[in-house]
Design a protein around this nucleic acid. Structure first.
Length: 1099
RNA sequence: GCGCGGUUAGCUCAGUGGUAGAGCAUUACCUUGACACGGUAGGGGUCGCAGGUUCGAACCCUGCACCGCGCACCA
């Protein structure tokens, strides 16, 4: 800090120190270290992503935790990496290729397309990593991982095969969430329900017999209108209302006309027309799926319809089919809610999840009418075929209108599942996919802590240990933070912060369905399954001998559709342990064989045998869920795993609690429970901190389309990374969403500048002796070596040392409880409001008055000049020593939050030179985290708490004295003289401090001062302060001020008096509280007396 | 429908039973020797509503309202 600039300039400082940390390998974790471990795995950002505010929040927190842990003496591993993000990345590259070459991925072919994605990854993969570096993240970059690294892919395959062998992974033709844009299946978690405005269409169909002849209404009895369920609207005509004439109703569709009132009736019962024919009205939001209907269902308990079960209806679409091909049964199914709609449900087993289940129960045929891309296929009928599903909906409605069967069309809002990625409605679609039955569910449920009061007991790994807090921990620590240090080797449960997420997690785990893990994409881990299908008749010839004999010897081999397992030694391998497990399915003429293997060599052999690999890839989360251990060398027993697994903290957003957190926990129990790892626990982390979601200042989510997402790098270049970090942390309370405002970053920058200038001020006061004096420093060489001398400590010194002690406690506790905004606020308050506003200002009394020792007034001339000078010098040096003590602690407290500026100051202020190389001598990163003052220190320096109160009283007097100025309408610049009438002895130091803080020209201390009538004054336990204005006083203004004050005091007195007059209060309240109230009353009364006297004096 | 948050100054939020707080914004004054990215002083609040518990409630309990989120959803 030789040429110290007036304002802090972060840009050069940040780059310089980041490079230094990298060069010095400060972030590299040593798995062989004897220090206790602390570890975090980064939630891997998308490899081609860009840093956004969510990353800033998330990674700043991780960096704070990591840096704090290093200062606590832990061996820290913060393991970074990126995620291949299947759909997102593939879509991005496809879009690019489309734009630049007007080609689809299919034009390029799989191999070429994957080349392009890899090229894209190589080109853009470092961007986000470099952005994290800009932010100051102290990740161990030597261990950076990517979810498609060869070793990582190996883990994914191994896990797949293991689960497959356990029978937890299976293939099945099921209803899945299909995204017609990405053209892939999705998991339930990737579907987002959104309210959608549409229409509810009611159309009617005739109930017929199996031969197509009308069901006679006579047969229909015992239906009577009055036997309806209570909720059904009663209508005397309902049973006999006339059917609408053919070709009815296009104009009145909006719902107000005759038609709609009749349709209300139609809800209550089937209509019976004059010819005695029975009509059912069906409600649907998706008329385009009518061609796929294979039944209509009613509730068997519904008296309106139950008698029709077993009859048929004629499906209106496709219109061109002959009626006999459109006959579908009326079935009874409990699923139908007869209070909803008309109580008649059209069943489309191929295009609706619930309908599929109904179809399965009733063995209904499936008619698929929608293609993978969301268009209709020929089975939907001529007019619909080829149309997009939404267009087809409109056309289907037109056809129903033409047929005269549409009875109502009313606006309707319902929830529709959307593909999270592509933002289009998903299509429930039947397809063959791979599914996973989640493993270790029960363990995963049991492992999370649920106690209500656990928020106060933060660290299961005893991150807060007795020694890390110092032995003198009393008041603030006794709240419980020191509490249960976990007994060594005993696993505790995992903790969520804030805890309420445990309930959400639990609920999800209780209700999970199997996970659809296959994706019809190309970018991702290809499913390690190979299949081969041979004609039964040619099996012997077509199969390798080993396989054929295994097949031939298998029991039940002729059973149709029978699945069994055979283990086949691979012919080319002599190693007997080398088996690939194969499943086979035999149908009437074919044998289908399936094999899964994680080994590339076996895959090659399988291919030689004519097996082909499943074309699908795995869900991206199927690789992410292995992140905590696959990045550490699993399945080998690496040093890293032994040292750093389970990780200490996970920091992530609650939006991926199901996608990622829950699944990682299950994977941890499933794959890390193996005794060979000799781990204390299989759980992947001990604490999960859920950040809030970053929103803009209007509370909206940040999104590209809204354009409300600021670019963190722009903010960093404008304000500095420290400023961004500090501002974000200050406004990010535990568990709350963060409303981001650039003002917060500005605040951070201002704070850094304040810190910078406070150090600059210290620097300008010269050397305290520890570091050599620079050329232009005062000529005196201080003797005291920067040590604090008790006898020279002023009350202000003691006050700031005590405040520092409190700040250390407060910040440490806040960090241990993951309360980052609390820690930041405490530091801000301490440094700005206590250190800068009061201590630094008060210290000027020492610096400036001692330097004026040479100009001592004449009455002191007898005192030896040199003695005076040296006393003043010693006093000054002592204050500098206190400043250094406070600053060197403060800078360390700030380091996790503001890594760059603190490193710069640490060196610039020379604090690094006092430390051993490994403990701050080289970098502040390894400097010890400040401990609360020890009993030795407080005893040595005489830091009694009474100095807090004493000095607060002094500062309060100053505040009131300043107020007199304003009350007297005196400009801030105008130098004024105050008179102080002390109640007891006032030290010259305190007099000087008061004078300086009042910005007074002079402070006359006069024990016998007789103020002229009307002199404004303030009262304090220290004495009375006057601002004599010699007739310049604005009497009216002063009267108003005093009157106001009297009023205020009286209000307070009344409040306290009322309390004290209540016998209930005086008898029931704890003595301390009672005493406090009595004291308060006395204080107010004194104040009142003075204010009243002053007011009276004005006449 | 079920569950979870929230409601305190103009804005964003702290505040777990004992004198209502911070930052920003705002008003007035000040470029004094670290800092105008600064200083000093001020104005501004029936703590969502209604009950209850208590000597005492922003805080604990009950109910309600409104805002947000999650889960489940019936055409």
């Amino acid at each position: 800090m030789s040429e110290i600039s007036k304002a802090y300039e972060p840009q050069t400082v940040e780059d310089k120190w980041y490079q230094f940390w990298l060069d010095e390998k400060c972030f590299v974790a040593d798995a062989t270290s004897s220090k206790p471990a602390y570890s975090i795995v980064i939630p891997p950002p998308n490899v081609t992503g860009m840093l956004h505010m969510g990353h800033v929040l998330n990674n700043t927190i991780q960096d704070i935790l990591s840096r704090k842990a290093r200062m606590d003496g832990k061996e820290v591993l913060w393991l970074p990496g990126t995620d291949h993000a299947g759909i997102a990345t593939q879509m991005m590259v496809e879009k690019q290729i489309k734009k630049e070459e007007k080609k689809s991925r299919h034009d390029l072919g799989r191999e070429e397309f994957l080349k392009r994605v890899w090229a894209w990854k190589e080109k853009h993969g470092d961007i986000i990593i470099n952005q994290l570096k800009k932010l100051g993240c102290s990740c161990d970059w030597t261990r950076e991982r990517f979810t498609m690294d060869p070793e990582y892919s190996r883990c994914v395959q191994k896990v797949f095969v293991e689960l497959y062998k356990k029978g937890l992974i299976y293939r099945g033709k099921r209803m899945v969430n299909w995204c017609p844009v990405s053209q892939t299946a999705l998991s339930d978690e990737e579907v987002e329900m959104k309210p959608q405005k549409g229409f509810m269409y009611h159309f009617r169909v005739e109930a017929v017999e199996s031969d197509g002849s009308p069901v006679k209404s006579a047969n229909a009895r015992p239906l009577t209108v009055t036997s309806h369920e209570p909720s059904a609207p009663q209508s005397p005509n309902a049973g006999t209302v006339s059917p609408s004439p053919g070709g009815v109703a296009t104009a009145a569709m909006a719902g107000e006309g005759e038609l709609s009132s009749r349709s209300a009736d139609s809800k209550s019962a089937p209509e019976i027309d004059s010819a005695g024919r029975i009509w059912l009205t069906i409600a649907t939001t998706r008329p385009e799926t009518i061609p796929g209907d294979t039944a209509v269902a009613v509730n068997p308990k519904d008296p309106r319809y139950a008698h029709l079960i077993g009859k048929y209806i004629v499906r209106p679409l496709p219109a061109e089919l002959p009626p006999e091909q459109k006959l579908i049964p009326i079935i009874g199914d409990e699923h139908v809610d007869f209070e909803f709609g008309t109580g008649v449900l059209k069943v489309t087993p191929a295009h609706d999840k619930a309908d599929f289940d109904i179809g399965a129960r009733h063995k209904l045929p499936l008619i698929e009418v929608i293609n993978a891309d969301g268009s209709m296929n020929p089975l939907a009928g001529g007019p619909l075929s080829g149309l997009d599903r939404f267009k087809a909906r409109k056309v289907a409605v037109e056809i129903l209108k033409e047929q005269g069967v549409l009875v109502e069309e009313k606006p309707y809002e319902n929830n529709v599942g959307f593909s999270q990625r592509a933002d289009v409605p998903i299509e429930p679609r039947l397809s063959e996919q791979w599914f996973l039955k989640y493993p270790a569910v029960e363990q995963s449920k049991a492992c999370v802590h649920h106690d209500q009061d656990s928020e106060r007991v933060p660290m299961a790994d005893a991150r807060v240990s007795a020694e890390s807090l110092g032995s003198s921990g009393d008041a603030p620590f006794s709240k419980g933070s020191l509490a249960p240090a976990r007994a060594a080797g005993v696993s505790d449960k995992m903790r969520f912060h804030p805890q309420r997420w445990a309930k959400v997690y639990d609920h999800w785990l209780t209700n999970i369905q199997d996970w659809c893990i296959s994706r019809q994409l190309w970018w991702g881990h290809r499913i390690p399954v190979w299949t081969k299908s041979v004609l039964k008749s040619e099996a012997k010839k077509a199969l390798p001998e080993t396989l054929w004999s295994a097949f031939e010897n298998a029991k039940d081999r002729d059973t149709n559709n029978h699945t069994a397992y055979i283990f086949v030694p691979l012919a080319q391998k002599s190693d007997e342990k080398s088996f690939v497990r194969m499943d086979w399915t035999i149908s009437s003429d074919k044998i289908e064989i399936t094999a899964a293997t994680e080994f590339p060599s076996e895959a090659v052999i399988l291919e030689e045998f004519g097996f082909t690999q499943d074309p699908d890839v795995l869900d991206t989360w199927f690789s992410s869920w292995l992140w905590p251990f696959a990045t550490m060398g699993w399945p080998e027993q690496t040093e890293t795993l032994k040292k750093f697994y389970p990780t200490t903290d996970l920091v992530t957003g609650p939006d991926i609690i199901f996608f990622w957190v829950a699944r990682m926990i299950m994977a941890g129990y499933e794959f890390m429970g193996d005794a060979k790892f000799a781990l204390p626990d299989a759980m992947p982390f001990r604490n999960v901190y859920f950040t809030g979601i970053i929103r803009d200042k209007q509370g909206r989510k940040m999104s590209k389309t809204l354009g409300n997402s600021p670019d963190p790098l722009v903010l960093i270049s404008q304000y500095g990374a420290d400023a961004l970090r500090f501002g974000t942390m200050r406004s990010a309370p535990l568990g709350q969403d963060v409303l981001f405002d650039e003002k917060d970053v500005e605040l951070g920058r201002n704070f850094c500048n304040k810190l910078w200038n406070a150090c600059r001020f210290r620097q300008m006061q010269g050397s305290a002796g520890a570091s050599p004096a620079s050329e232009d420093a005062p000529s005196e060489q201080f003797e005291i070596q920067g040590e604090i001398v008790r006898t020279l400590l002023t009350p202000d010194d003691k006050w700031i040392l005590l405040k520092l002690d409190l700040a250390i406690r407060e910040v440490t506790i806040a960090l241990n409880e993951y309360k980052f905004s609390e820690a930041t606020s405490a530091l801000y308050r301490f440094f700005w409001n206590e250190y800068c506003d009061w201590y630094v200002e008060a210290s000027k009394a020492v610096f400036f008055s001692s330097s004026r020792g040479n100009e001592a007034p004449s009455e002191k001339s007898e005192i030896d000049q040199s003695l005076l000078t040296s006393a003043a010098t010693a006093q000054k040096a002592n204050s500098l020593a206190v400043m250094d003590f406070v600053l060197s602690h403060t800078i360390r407290l700030f380091h996790p939050f503001l890594p760059f500026i603190t490193e710069e100051l640490w060196h610039g202020m020379g604090y690094s030179t006092d430390m051993p190389a490994g403990q701050g001598g080289k970098t502040i990163m390894n400097a010890p985290w400040p401990l609360p003052l020890t009993d030795d220190e407080t005893g040595e320096w005489g830091l009694d708490d009474c100095y807090l109160e004493m000095t607060d009283t002094k500062y309060e007097l100053v505040r009131n004295g300043r107020d007199l100025r304003r009350a007297g309408n005196i400009q801030a610049a105008k130098k004024v003289k105050y008179v102080f009438k002390p109640a007891q002895h006032l030290t010259p130091h305190d007099a000087e401090v008061i004078k300086l803080l009042l910005n007074a020209e002079a402070l006359e201390v006069n024990e016998t001062f007789q103020p002229p009538k009307g002199t404004p004054s303030v009262q304090s336990p220290m004495g009375e302060l006057f601002l004599p204005l010699e007739g310049l006083i604005d009497v009216a203004a002063e009267k108003i001020r005093l009157a106001k004050e009297v009023e205020k005091i009286q209000t307070e007195i009344t409040k306290v008096e009322q309390k004290l007059a209540n016998p209930n209060f005086t008898t029931k309240v704890p003595p301390a509280v009672l005493q406090e109230h009595e004291q308060r009353l006395a204080d107010w009364k004194t104040k009142l007396a003075h204010a009243q006297a002053a007011l009276d004096a004005l006449g």
